[in-house]
Simulated scan of single mutants.
Amino acid sequence: MSIFKPRIIIPLAICAGVLGWWMEPHFSQEDKAYYVSVFCAIHHDDSSQFLKDMQTVIDGGNSDYALQKINYQPALGEKVFKAWQQLPADQQQSVFSNNEACRKVMGAQLK
């Protein structure tokens, strides 16, 4: 008698797949667009500061009296930064010359 029977393995595999999907962060299109807008608006002299600058802008953009405060999501910030890093070097620099072009290129990268 084998311990690895299909009637046991298949449900376990399905549960593992669903659990993996559920544990992975899912971001709305609105959140992605907001993070891209912030990324395109920050000062771009030092790429090592992008994530810190994004966090400062997002966390600092909350009013003291806001009922719903927006908290920085590091996983989404990383995703936006990695999307920028995947662009060719010439395109990395060119997206910062125009905010509209930056949002369009970076938005397409995140889809």
Rank of each mutant, 00 (worst) to 15 (best):
P88L: 10
E78I: 10
K79T: 06
Y72H: 08
L76N: 04
V95R: 07
F96C: 04
G60L: 07
Y72G: 00
A66G: 04
V95A: 04
D64Y: 07
N99P: 05
Q55S: 13
L67E: 12
S94C: 01
V95W: 00
G77W: 00
A101H: 07
G77N: 05
F96A: 04
G60R: 10
F81E: 13
Q85H: 01
L51F: 03
P88A: 08
S94R: 14
N71F: 07
L51T: 09
F96G: 04
G77T: 06
F81V: 10
L76P: 01
I58A: 06
Q55R: 15
R103Y: 01
S97Y: 06
C102K: 04
D53V: 01
R103F: 00
V80H: 09
D53H: 13
S63K: 11
Q86D: 15
Q73G: 03
F81T: 14
V80W: 04
W84E: 03
Y72L: 03
N62G: 08
G77L: 01
F81A: 13
V95I: 15
E100R: 09
N99D: 09
L51P: 00
P88I: 11
F96E: 02
L76M: 07
M54I: 06
Y65S: 11
W84K: 05
P74E: 02
S97T: 10
K82Y: 09
I70E: 14
K69M: 09
Q92D: 03
Q86H: 12
A83W: 01
A83P: 12
Y65E: 12
T56P: 01
N98W: 02
R103C: 09
V80C: 11
N71T: 13
Q86P: 00
N98S: 14
S63R: 10
V95K: 07
A101G: 04
Q73T: 14
Q92C: 04
P88G: 08
Q68P: 00
S63D: 13
A101I: 07
S94H: 06
Q93F: 02
A66I: 03
D90A: 11
R103E: 15
D53N: 15
F96N: 09
L76Y: 02
A66S: 15
F81Y: 15
A66T: 06
N71G: 12
A101Q: 14
D53P: 00
P74Y: 02
Y65A: 11
A101D: 11
Q93R: 13
L51D: 10
